[in-house]
Amino acid sequence: ERLAYIADHLGFSWTELARELDFTEEQIHQIRIENPNSLQDQSHALLKYWLERDGKHATDTNLVECLTKINRMDIVHLME
């Protein structure tokens, strides 16, 4: 799945992406607590919560915009 692929590449950027996707610091902290050992797991959790929260509004376009804002064009190019 594309989101899994994106999550695998996010690394430390997942928190920046979370902020761009309008997650609160508290929500970010919660994701860290729930997935303490792996940045990859934290990234996967973030994208899963985003899909659950935004439903049909959780679009590739939205994700590309946010990834561009945090200067992760490498991931944007991987999505093309």
Rank of each mutant, 00 (worst) to 15 (best):
Q27L: 10
T24A: 09
P36N: 15
L10W: 02
A4S: 13
D22H: 12
L47P: 00
D54M: 12
H9P: 03
I70F: 01
I33D: 06
W50A: 12
Q27H: 15
R53T: 11
R53W: 12
N62P: 08
V64W: 05
L67M: 03
M73Y: 14
L63G: 01
W50E: 02
W50G: 03
S13F: 10
L51Y: 14
G55I: 07
T15Y: 02
R53D: 02
H44Q: 09
W14N: 02
L21M: 06
N62V: 14
R72T: 02
L10F: 04
P36W: 08
K69S: 10
L21N: 05
L63S: 01
H77N: 08
I31G: 00
I75P: 02
E20Q: 05
S43F: 02
E16N: 13
H9I: 11
L67T: 00
A18E: 00
E16P: 03
L67R: 00
D60H: 03
F23Q: 00
T24D: 14
G55K: 07
C66A: 12
I31H: 01
V64E: 15
H57L: 07
H44A: 14
L3P: 04
E52T: 12
I28R: 04
L10H: 00
F12T: 11
R32W: 03
E25S: 10
Q30M: 13
I28P: 00
K48S: 07
L21W: 07
T15I: 09
Y49P: 02
T61M: 02
H29Q: 11
V76E: 09
F23C: 04
R53C: 07
N35P: 01
K69M: 08
I70C: 06
A4F: 15
Y49K: 09
E65D: 15
M73D: 15
A4T: 15
H29S: 10
F23K: 00
G55Y: 09
R53K: 11
N71K: 08
G55N: 13
P36H: 04
I33Y: 11
L17G: 00
L47C: 05
V76I: 14
L63N: 00
H9A: 06
T61N: 03
Y49F: 13
V64S: 12
L10R: 00
L46G: 01
Q40W: 08
H44C: 01
D22S: 13
K48D: 09
A4I: 04
N35L: 06
I75G: 03
L21G: 08
L21E: 00
E34G: 09
E34L: 09
D60Y: 05
E20S: 08
H29K: 12
L67H: 00
L46T: 06
L39N: 07
N37I: 12
W50M: 13
Q30G: 08
G11M: 04
D54Q: 06
Y5H: 13
L51V: 07
L10M: 04
H57M: 12
L3G: 04
P36F: 08
L10D: 02
M79I: 03
D54E: 11
T24V: 03
T24L: 05
I31V: 09
E26D: 09
R72E: 00
T59K: 11
L3N: 08
R19V: 07
N71E: 05
S38W: 02
D22E: 04
V76R: 04
Q30W: 04
G11W: 03
D74E: 05
Q27S: 13
C66R: 12
F23R: 00
D41V: 08
Y49W: 06
I6P: 02
T59H: 09
P36G: 10
F12K: 05
T68C: 03
D41H: 06
E34W: 11
T61I: 13
L47F: 14
T68K: 10
I6T: 01
L51H: 10
N62W: 13
K48R: 13
K48T: 14
K48G: 14
I33S: 09
L3Q: 11
W14V: 03
E26F: 03
Q27I: 10
F12V: 10
F23L: 08
I75V: 15
L10S: 01
T15Q: 07
I33P: 00
L39D: 11
L46R: 00
C66G: 10
D8V: 03
T68E: 14
D41W: 04
E65M: 03
C66M: 13
